[in-house]
């Protein structure tokens, strides 16, 4: 389990944030996904099996892009 912080581009309304949260939560190995629409950041706890591409895909599926991923 590690913590990931994503900067997400293109979100401009509350349902956007809710969509990203939903899409991330559906990804296997991603837990506790939460998205702050105002700071345009997403936070999640992920298992080691989750790749950066998995996260990008999940965010893209909801219609947005990850600008940057930081691990902690």
């Amino acid at each position: 389990m590690k913590k990931v912080i994503m900067e997400i581009q293109g979100m401009h309304c509350a349902s956007c944030a809710s969509n990203v949260e939903k899409s991330l939560s559906k990804t296997q190995g991603v837990k506790n996904a939460r998205v702050n629409m105002i700071a345009k950041k997403g936070y999640a706890d992920i298992e080691d099996s989750v790749s950066e591409e998995d996260l990008r895909k999940a965010v893209r599926r909801a219609g947005y892009n990850i600008a940057k991923i930081n691990y902690e």
Binding site: H12, C13, A14, S15, C16, N19, K22, S23, R61, A62, G63
Partner: peptide, 10 residues
């Protein structure tokens, strides 16, 4: 895009 992907938004 939201309509077609079922990720509806504002």
């Amino acid at each position: 895009r939201g309509l077609f992907s079922f990720y509806f938004n504002m």
